[in-house]
Amino acid sequence: MMTLEHLAEERQPVWIVPAPLVVWALHFLACYVTAALWCGPAVGTAPGGAALGNTALAGLPLALFTIYTLASMLALLALIRMGYRAHTLGDASPPHDADSPADRHRFIGYATLLIAGLSLVAVIYSAMAVFMVQTCQ
């Protein structure tokens, strides 16, 4: 059981609220950079690169996309779990608008849960993009 001490504001992780979107951003950026490098002349003209005649992404970049996506989903699931646990602390339900450290804690958890859900959809969309359109043209 959480005690008041556990709920002190110094111990409240606030970073978990934007964290899921940071996961999305990292996934997005990693996919973007990987695609840009493999399609661009600096890396893409090396053997296996897509810019040299070979216009479809294959092999290593696709493996990388897979790794990025799986890692992001794992991280998001962990954040969903954290958020859900904070959200369901005790037996209160939303709107979490009481003037108490517990409701503040639940609110943070609930926001994290929702944001992680959104991030999960966004990561899936990015993954759809890179796996459905594997072309550098």
Binding site: T55, Y125, M128, A129, M132, V133, T135, Q137
Partner: peptide, 15 residues
């Protein structure tokens, strides 16, 4: 919609 759009993209950008 996204799936539909992604599906029609490669032919439109190919040589």
């Amino acid at each position: 919609l996204l799936a539909y759009g992604l599906w029609m993209l490669p032919p439109l950008v190919s040589r």
